[in-house]
Write a protein that binds this DNA or RNA. Structure first.
Lengths: 216, 216
DNA sequence: ACGAAAATATGCACTGACTCCAAGTTTGGG
DNA sequence: CCCAAACTTGGAGTCAGTGCATATTTTCGT
């Protein structure tokens, strides 16, 4: 992984140059107000080169969407023995999910999203794909007590509500501390609503090597 | 309402002409494969006229999205005294919500959506707005036991899962009867999951005119 | 170290949705 | 019957995104 030819390094550098130039422009003047030609000028490449690295204008902004998409599925996949999906998400979401973080760096970024219909549409798509990933992890867990897609959709619903709340609070220019505590409270409240129905769904069974008692 | 000048009638007719011409083309060859110029030719108007009636290409396809957006909020708003939002939705959704219907007419329509990223994005937007409408109706009901936006999001989650299931079944070319029963079963199952948490949320209070006993 | 092959960058021409504006044309009301 | 408002149209332009042909750069086998 540390091994990397000149070509690969250069590619990585170019990609970063374009992405940071674009993000800066977007946050400064708004997504729709910036043209790809301007991004190209700022990054000192041709417009076509941008398309070599990014499929769409939105991809320039959501450069690392993959992390956000994989987050909940990863949390559930990495839950400890005896923990349910719900339990793992309750205790890990606020820490590891980029969707739940609130710091000063988020402010301009979130405002930019808020002001652009195209970016908001993209966020919806990301949320949808999060749900799909989560659903397939839950399906693999093989808990027949409920439809995994439905369980994933309920969790996804909670996440949407929390994300919307975060947006609203940033929009209202609340202090980071305030947002953080409100977010924690809302997260707890939302998951509490879900506990009776899915609190024990997809509980990870103990390994079958016989050293621990059965779980049932 | 029956009163309508020649101008207004003509407008309505033109709108319908454009919309049906467009829908026919879309279902025949796919949304992305049809150009607005072609729609204009088919409807015998200019491209600019299309934009007089419809804001975007997608609006041509989702001509009556307003009904879909207002459906759950309407059901909840119209619930009888003593019924909760959950109860009203469980018993009315399959009947009155266009999102839950399954008949032969849906087939081509849904396939067209399925094959177009742009239309799928629009569906996500519609789902989002449904949730917002529902959330504001719930908020107006003033049940402080839970955050109305969260409750709306959970219901929205269930709806998304059901809609996705319907899509998958149409995609797999299942028979309408099969889809209908599967849909009913999934709807019941999803709402059952929600009952313990929100089953009595926003129960409509009896009128205050004193003729009936207090509820609480 | 050299030259061919593969990867990458760029310019050019094009499509298609959408906007703005400046005429036409049609309709309703006085 | 004529004027004003509503509606339609054409034309010119913007911008994201595609396809292609042509440089230019990097890599790799020899």
């Amino acid at each position: 992984m540390a091994e990397m030819g000149l070509r690969a390094r250069k590619k990585q550098r170019t990609r970063l140059t374009i992405s940071t130039a674009a993000t800066a422009l977007f946050e400064e003047r708004g997504f729709e107000q910036v043209t790809l030609a301007e991004v190209a000028r700022a990054a000192e490449v041709s417009v076509n080169t941008i398309f070599n690295y990014f499929g769409t204008k939105e991809d320039l902004f959501f450069d690392r969407q993959d992390e956000a998409i994989a987050a909940p599925a990863g949390v559930v996949l990495g839950r400890a023995t005896g923990q349910s999906a719900w339990y793992a998400l309750v205790h890990d979401s606020l820490r590891s999910d980029p969707l739940f973080t609130a710091d000063e760096l988020n402010r301009d970024w979130l405002r930019t999203i808020d002001e652009s219909p195209a970016l908001r549409a993209r966020v919806r798509e990301i949320m949808d794909r999060r749900e799909e990933e989560l659903a397939s992890v839950l399906a693999a867990a093989g808990d027949g007590s409920a439809n995994p897609a439905v369980v994933a959709a309920l969790i996804g619903g909670a996440h949407r509500a929390i994300a919307a709340d975060r947006q609203a609070r940033f929009r209202a220019n609340q202090a980071i501390r305030t947002i953080r505590t409100a977010l924690a409270r809302l997260t707890a409240g939302s998951y509490a609503l879900l506990e009776p129905s899915i609190g024990t769904y997809a509980t990870k069974a103990a390994p079958l090597d016989g050293t621990s008692a059965s779980v049932t």
